[in-house]
Design a protein around this nucleic acid. Structure first.
Lengths: 214, 214
DNA sequence: AAGCGAGTGGACGAAATAGTCCAGTAACGT
DNA sequence: ACGTTACTGGACTATTTCGTCCACTCGCTT
């Protein structure tokens, strides 16, 4: 269930070695986040993390293994964020509103985009054998929304005609697509619009009268 | 307004030269479409188009210029498709429904994804100076939806409270995000869900009673 | 037909980059 | 303390890949 591939690979490392591995991972994640996968090369990671070439091969035998570790790193971050108490399992409209507000108002600068989304679209077509891992992460992400929406329906907060699975996909797609558009336009507007529209759509299923329009 | 960069570069080419250029472009577009930008190298294009190395440099001095030409090529295709009579300017709900049906039912295999979308997210973070061109294309794409929706509102087909700009972004984001999710999941379901939900949302603004639910 | 420019071919050069090798250092267990 | 194991450094190699160079051919014009 929980992502722990990073720990798997670090099982027989001493504290010092593990620290070095973590340092490489941090910097690699940051670089990939900012420059993309294939623009992040050996040397950049090496210099950023302050390690020698052999250490990369030592902790991450191939670039693919490094990318995979970064995916796990980002996955932990994203899934952990969505599972935090802040959103209470996404079983209220307010939770979804808070979620969109986070990205629109205070979120990360739009230039960077969603680490996982852009990472995914950059890799999906390549030979890198990370597809399954990515698919799993996105499935879990979707599941967070799905469970919350299903609960909302069972509790009668939204109408029985609402389709939790469909709405979950809608939210995820609105976020991913909106992020892409925001990146391209260098303007957070499209993301804002897409997420607002998604929440608006969710509101159309709300059964009670206090729909907190806005 | 219209995309013509390709013609710009081909201004002083003889028919034979132009034919060769087109051939390179076709195959390059197909390769990029299927394998991504950075997995499509010199040699692949050369062999696919049946040209020698020097010809690539002759017609496209740098890889960036080739990518740019492919973007224009794809842009013409996508924008032309959306401007076709089939969708009548997207000024009816049925047009949007037809549009989603096209991608969901008969559309291109989901593995490939949207040429422009995946192309964009692969390039956006790089140094390639194609950002402006991509932004322009997406802006035009959005404008097609926006104009149609605005017209729908002016004609009273949807409620005055509907926000055409927001809805346009929602449709584009739903498509782009849905396509990404479909690629990752290797299942067209997410795209189907996202687009269906988007159309459902549009329907909530329909003023007349014949809403053709489905 | 002769010349000139566009078009073409294949080999080559230069640069970037992933991954290896081996020697040297530090840390841990006994 | 000592040996084993983990850790580190930097140079090196192999490969990929973009782009160039120069010789050659084709086709149009006069």
């Amino acid at each position: 269930m929980q992502v722990d591939n990073g720990a798997d690979a670090a099982q027989k490392l001493t504290p010092k070695g593990q620290a070095t591995r973590e340092r490489i991972l941090e910097h690699a994640a940051a670089l990939i986040y900012g420059k993309g996968v294939h623009a992040t090369n050996n040397e950049l990671v090496r210099r950023a993390a302050g390690v020698s070439g052999s250490q990369l091969s030592h902790y991450f035998p191939t670039k693919e293994s490094l990318v995979l570790a970064v995916i796990d790193w980002q996955a932990d971050s994203v899934l952990g964020f969505h599972r935090s108490e802040r959103f209470a399992g996404f079983d209220t409209v307010e939770a979804f509103q808070d979620w969109t507000d986070f990205y629109v108002l205070s979120g990360r600068p739009f230039e960077d985009g969603c680490s996982l989304g852009s990472l995914a679209s950059e890799i999906v077509k390549t030979d890198l054998d990370v597809h399954d891992r990515l698919a799993e992460v996105f499935a879990q992400w979707r599941e967070i929304f799905h469970v919350g929406l299903d609960r909302m329906r069972q509790l009668g907060r939204i109408d029985a005609s609402a389709d939790p699975a469909r709405l979950a996909d809608m939210f995820l797609a609105a976020y991913q697509g909106g992020t892409l558009l925001a990146q391209v336009a260098r303007d957070i507007g499209p993301l804002q619009d897409a997420l607002s529209a998604a929440v608006d759509h969710l509101r159309t299923f709300v059964t009670s009268d206090d729909q907190h329009m806005g």
